[in-house]
C-alpha cells in the first residue's frame, strides 16, 4: 500500500517539550495505528523557511502538510478567534480552557478556517506576569515597566495596564530580561523552561484561585486540505480519531503537566500573590481592550459584540 509522509512544520526548537512530548508522540501514534503507512517528518525552528507569521499560509499552500502555530501570529487573518484572546477571558490551565476554545471555534469561528483541515484549536494555558527585579502586586507597580508581549491582544493589555509593550522574537527574550532591556514578560508557565525565562525572572504574579488568566494565546494545529482529502479512507479515519477534541485533550494533559512542573520548580518566595480586589482593578483598567477590539472587528463587517458575548458565555467567567 502507499505510504504517506506528512511535512510537519513549527517554530519551536527540536528540543522543546512541545516537540518531544506532543508532536513526536502524536506522529508516533499515527504511525503505529496505520502500521507505518502514515508518518511525519518534523521541521522544527522554521526549517521550511519563512517566518512564524507565515505558517498558516504555508500549510494552506501545501508548502507544509501540517503546521502548529497561533492564528494571531498572522494578525488580521483570523479576527473571530481573537475573541478568545481578550483579557481575562479564559481560565488558567489548558485542560480547562481547551474545550472552551474548541467550542468557540465550532460555534463562531469555523468560517475563518474553511481553507484548512483543523486538527486542534487550544489555548496556551493562560499567561501571567513574570518580572526580573520588581514584583507586580498592584496595578500601579506596572507603571513604566517594559514587558514583552507575545501577540496583539496581550500588547494592548499591557498598554492598558500602564506598562510599555515591547515586541521581540522569543529567542531574544531571555537575554533581554537578564540585561534589563525589558523588565519582564507576559508569558505562559508552560513554555517558561523551554526558553529559560524562569532563570532570569524572580517574581511571578499569581491571582487567587478561580480567577481568569490575564491573557491567553489561541494555538492551532492545521492540516492542508488537499493532503487530507487525498488520503485513503482508512487513514482519514486515523487522522479524525486523533484530532479535534481528542487531540485537544491530549495536548491539555501534557501542557498542564509541564505548567505544574514549572510551577513546582519555582521557589514559593518568588510567587507574588495578588488580592482579588487588586486583580479586579486590573480587570477594570483593561476593559477598554475588548471594547476596542469589538470596534475593530465591526469595521471588518463582523459582529464584534456577538462574538465577544459568545466567547464570554462559553468561557463562563463573566
Amino acid at each position: 500500500a502507499d505510504t504517506f509522509v506528512l511535512k510537519f512544520g513549527h517554530f519551536l526548537p527540536a528540543t522543546s517539550h512541545h516537540q518531544r512530548l506532543i508532536f513526536e508522540p502524536w506522529c508516533e501514534k499515527l504511525k503505529s495505528e496505520s502500521a507505518g503507512r502514515l508518518s511525519c517528518q518534523l521541521y522544527p525552528s522554521m526549517q521550511l523557511g519563512g517566518t512564524p507569521a507565515k505558517l498558516a499560509d504555508m500549510v494552506r499552500n501545501g508548502v507544509a502538510d501540517i503546521v502548529w502555530t497561533a492564528p494571531s501570529y498572522s494578525p488580521g487573518k483570523f479576527p473571530r478567534i481573537e475573541a478568545m484572546e481578550q483579557p481575562f477571558m479564559l481560565p488558567y490551565g489548558a485542560r480547562k480552557s481547551n474545550p472552551m476554545v474548541w467550542k468557540f471555534y465550532e460555534d463562531y469561528a469555523r468560517d475563518e478556517f474553511t481553507d484548512y483541515k483543523v486538527l486542534a484549536m487550544h489555548s496556551d494555558g493562560g499567561m501571567g506576569i513574570h518580572t526580573a527585579r520588581k514584583p507586580v502586586k498592584v496595578l500601579a507597580d506596572l507603571k513604566d515597566m517594559k514587558l514583552r508581549a507575545s501577540n496583539r491582544s496581550s500588547a494592548k493589555l499591557i498598554e492598558a495596564l500602564g506598562a510599555t509593550p515591547v515586541s521581540m522574537p522569543p529567542a531574544q527574550m531571555t537575554e533581554s530580561i537578564s540585561k534589563g532591556v525589558i523588565d519582564g514578560v507576559l508569558f505562559t508557565w508552560n513554555a517558561m523552561r523551554d526558553v529559560k525565562v524562569n532563570e532570569v525572572t524572580h517574581f511571578h504574579t499569581e491571582p487567587s484561585a478561580n480567577q481568569p488568566a490575564l491573557s491567553s494565546t489561541v494555538l492551532t494545529m492545521l492540516m492542508n486540505k488537499n493532503t487530507f482529502n487525498r488520503l485513503p479512507d482508512d487513514l482519514k479515519v486515523i487522522i479524525e480519531r486523533n484530532s479535534g477534541p481528542a487531540l485537544n485533550e491530549f495536548i491539555g494533559e501534557v501542557w498542564d503537566g509541564e505548567m505544574d512542573a514549572a510551577f513546582k520548580q519555582t521557589p514559593a518566595s518568588e510567587i507574588v500573590q495578588m488580592s482579588d480586589a487588586d486583580y479586579q482593578a486590573m480587570q477594570t483598567a483593561a476593559a477598554q481592550v475588548a471594547d476596542n477590539w469589538v470596534k475593530e472587528v465591526d469595521g471588518k463587517g463582523l459582529d464584534g459584540e456577538a462574538l465577544l458575548k459568545g466567547a464570554r458565555a462559553i468561557s463562563q467567567i463573566q
Binding site: 521550511l48 523557511g49 507565515k54 499560509d57 499552500n61 501545501g62 508548502v63
Partner: peptide, 20 residues
C-alpha cells in the same frame, strides 16, 4: 512546482525584513 512557488512568494520580503 507549487511548494517551490509558494515558498518564493514570501522569500524576498521575509528575508529582507528580518530584524536581526
Amino acid at each position: 512546482t507549487s511548494a517551490l512557488l509558494y515558498t518564493l512568494n514570501n522569500l524576498a520580503y521575509s528575508r529582507l525584513s528580518n530584524y536581526d
